[in-house]
Design a protein around this nucleic acid. Sequence first.
DNA 1: CAGTATCCAAAGGGATACTG
DNA 2: CAGTATCCCTTTGGATACTG
Lengths: 116, 116
Amino acid sequence: MANQEFQQEHKTEIRAVNDAMEVLYGKWKISIISSICYYSKRRFSDILNDVNGISNKMLSKELKELELNELVKRTVLDTQPISVQYELTEHGKTLQTIINNLTNWGIEHRKKITGK
Amino acid sequence: MANQEFQQEHKTEIRAVNDAMEVLYGKWKISIISSICYYSKRRFSDILNDVNGISNKMLSKELKELELNELVKRTVLDTQPISVQYELTEHGKTLQTIINNLTNWGIEHRKKITGK
DNA sequence: CAGTATCCAAAGGGATACTG
DNA sequence: CAGTATCCCTTTGGATACTG
């Protein structure tokens, strides 16, 4: 493989990893996914409680983005008053491995940095 | 396991994944790691070229943070003019699996969203 | 309950110029 | 070459209040 192709392939990889990160950026996105994933189905106010420190504005905004990226499915339940349920789509579930890896890495990293 | 413990474990997981994300946040961080990783050793100006659109200010800043987190090692080479080499530490290399997973996921996600 | 709307402070980051 | 410093605009996101 020529050097130029080698570099080109690298740039393609960078673009792909950035595509992934774009979806995950946002202060709360992973926590939200994690919450929904942990409980399978979760209502708006439940997530608001799970995720420490998030405001309703941010939760609403990040859920919308997750929905746009087809990671999360939103269902309005016919209750009184209304409640809304969120769950991961099949596509959303494919993130699980990555999140698990990140979780484990985070644990090791904390040990490493804070000095065991 | 009681319900409270169940929820507590979940919060611990969320904290761990956020620890990991903190390290990876920053518009350019993953691209920088990826560049260094791809070439094993890489100089400042090389990375500046690999990562499309980054400014020297940002590169400098993000490299410092990566160094603080012990993911990257900085070596000043005794050349004229000076050049500086960056490489991944052992700890930094443990991120490779995650980055590969993210890259693959990014490729699939793009197919999915932009409509195959 | 599940959001929206508004106001505002702080952080992020681009462009450009300068330094050892 | 490998950064720093500065200026300044944009984005993020917290607090609070309001709505169907």
